[in-house]
């Protein structure tokens, strides 16, 4: 039986939902599960990691690991992976994961599958499913010729198991002897929003040109507040300068996979669909009944945002009460 190392990410002292998904998947494979976390607060999540099956947790507590530095993190993670003797590494296909692990794979001569949406672990046999060609096709893939396998999973794809409150874990502190680095993180400018990033959000309320003007995005924000959702946008309104690029969903923006995607005033250009067709349930609200978005939608309302959104927000408020 192999050993699975889960690289976990955390926020405000709690494991991210996507990391719980990975721990749960690792645990249900029946193999030994260990976790790895980095940063000065990393040890604080060891109890939570243990409740989801991690028997050991490797932590790098150096403050230099509080900010993501690709060079330093590659060094730290390759050392931990080697030390743990894990044959499978799971991480989230987050901004950090997608940047870091391809380099780690290259250094370790490991196989890597990024941006996966399904994962099956059966002994040494690991298969995954990945969207390719902008989500127009799925590829079922497996590993060969590699002792170390790395899988990067998109958030919101795997079930979370019931935590075991009495579990304990063994914390293994690892320190990194960093050589002189050629990469320097000069500044990290926080985003303005306290909401979950689009790529992690479970509900997204997205607006397009049909919102008519930038000021009308407040209707989307009100709806998003009621649902605990994150606001997104189409390329057209980003290019028009109504909202910033970090809100763009679709090709040249973000690829998202929430449980619920509400598209308001978005016609559904193929570039937009490429970024959100992995959503479980899609609601389209558009004045044009022939808009392509209705062909992807689960539910639809033909109507104007100004008539629909205030009523919808009220209705959700009642339903969520």
């Amino acid at each position: 039986m192999g050993k699975i190392l889960v690289f976990v990410e955390f926020n405000h002292g709690q494991l991210k939902r996507s990391s719980l998904e990975l721990l749960s998947a690792a645990q249900s494979s029946g193999q030994t599960v260990v976790a790895a976390a980095v940063g000065s607060l990393a040890e604080g999540i060891s109890k939570e990691a243990s409740q989801y099956g991690a028997t050991d947790i490797y932590v790098i507590k150096e403050t230099t690991f509080d900010k993501y530095n690709p060079e330093l993190f590659t060094l730290g993670l390759t050392e931990i992976i080697k030390k743990s003797e894990a044959s499978l590494v799971l991480a989230t296909a987050s901004a950090l994961g997608k940047d870091l692990f391809p380099r780690v794979a290259a250094r370790l001569d490991a196989g890597i599958l990024s941006d996966c949406i399904e994962l099956k672990i059966s002994g040494d046999n690991v298969t995954a499913k990945r969207p390719i060609y902008s989500g127009k096709c799925f590829s079922k893939v497996t590993f060969e010729n590699c002792p170390i396998k790395i899988v990067l999973m998109r958030p919101n794809q795997l079930p979370i198991s019931v935590p075991n409150a009495s579990a304990t874990t063994n914390v293994i502190a690892h320190s990194v002897n960093a050589p002189s680095l050629r990469t320097l993180i000069k500044e990290v400018v926080k985003g303005t929003s306290e909401k979950l990033d689009l790529t992690e959000a479970n509900i997204i309320v997205s607006g397009g040109r049909g919102m008519k003007e930038a000021g009308n995005f407040k209707f989307l924000e009100q709806l998003a507040d009621v649902l605990g959702a994150t606001v997104g946008a189409s390329r057209a309104v980003v290019d028009a300068g109504w909202v910033t690029h970090d809100l763009q969903v679709g090709q040249t923006g973000k690829t998202v996979a929430p449980s619920l995607y509400i598209a308001v005033g978005i016609s559904g250009a193929i570039q937009h669909l490429a970024g959100m067709s992995g959503s479980k349930v899609i609601v389209a609200i558009n004045t044009d009944a022939n808009a392509p978005i209705f062909q992807k939608a689960t539910y639809g309302i033909v109507g104007d945002f100004a008539d629909v959104l205030p009523k919808l927000t009220e209705e959700f408020k009642r339903a969520m009460a």
Binding site: K67, Y68, S94, A95, L96, T183, L184, I185, K186, E187, V188, V189, K190, G191, T192, S193, K195, L196, D197, T199, E200, T244, D246, L247
Partner: peptide, 9 residues
């Protein structure tokens, strides 16, 4: 990076 965060490198 995530959530509109920007890293100057």
């Amino acid at each position: 990076a995530e959530g509109g965060q920007c890293e100057v490198v």
